[in-house]
Amino acid sequence: MLRYIFRRLIAVPLLLLGVATVAFFLSQTTRGDPLSAVVPERQMNNPEIVAAAKERWGLDKTLAERYVIYVSNLARGDLGTSFTTRRPVSADLAERLPATFELVLAAMTFATVVGVGLGVLSARYQNGPIDHFSRIFALLGSSLPVFWSGLILLYLLTVQLGWFPGPGRLSAHTPPPPPITGLYTLDSLLTGNIPVFLESLHRLMLPAIVLGWSVVGVITRLVRSSLLEVLGQDYIRTARAKGALEGRVMIHHALRNALIPTLTIIGFAFAYLITGAVLTEAVFSWPGIGSYAVSAARALDYPAIIGVTLLGSLAFLLANLATDIAYGLVNPKVKLQ
């Protein structure tokens, strides 16, 4: 098992190098001039300033030279300097990742609990009212754009009903907890700061529900269909024949088998949301990776764009690995070697 994980981890840097290479050359094919991101428009006519900027950012070198420099920096963990924030990209990402991670973690918890729960109920009461409700709920979550559902819920639940606080991870008056993990809820809990914990949790809920709702659909439908398939298997009949009641048959015998395909989707959705929470982060002023990616893309901030790409790829690779490990734990026929 450990050897399997080790072997898989060895492959990660190689895969990331591939991603970095593709992302690097792809970014060079765009029509925009990165100089416009670093030199103010008024000074574009000033050759001295342009030349200085080119030298400063290495834009006077050939493509091959720049690639070699980029990759050798990458090997030392240096993702370059952002054109816009003028800070190391790795520092920017490190600062923003915990916010996104906390949001995605909460969103996936919501999506998994609700998705699996509704999936089980839909399969148990197939074509009944619960099944129809969950179908509509899932459909809405999958098809409503997050910026719309987010704004509507924000308006209804925060502005009108006052159930949830406004956007942001904490209000401006609340000092964030000392960074241990970067997750405000966890850090405040670790330092025993209950008021901050409650506030950060409260503020986390609505964006997490909005983001989670967008992936509830796939989970519910997959759980439902795999459960219905599993419920037709011989071993379900055996379980009934040995005296298990329907609830136990469902949870103990059917669900465990039905969750095997669902794990893949959950892992995939988790990785996808790390870079895919853009709109939710924008609606809820969440200082995460998504909003960083958007501003980087708009400013043609190549180092930041490639940095986000690499982070997203890393999230996919790790989520895949976690999924495979979970497979091995749930399905005894899978041996990790």
Partner: peptide
């Protein structure tokens, strides 16, 4: 084979 649950001992 099919009458036993594959994920339980």
């Amino acid at each position: 084979l099919t009458a036993f649950n594959p994920v339980l001992t």
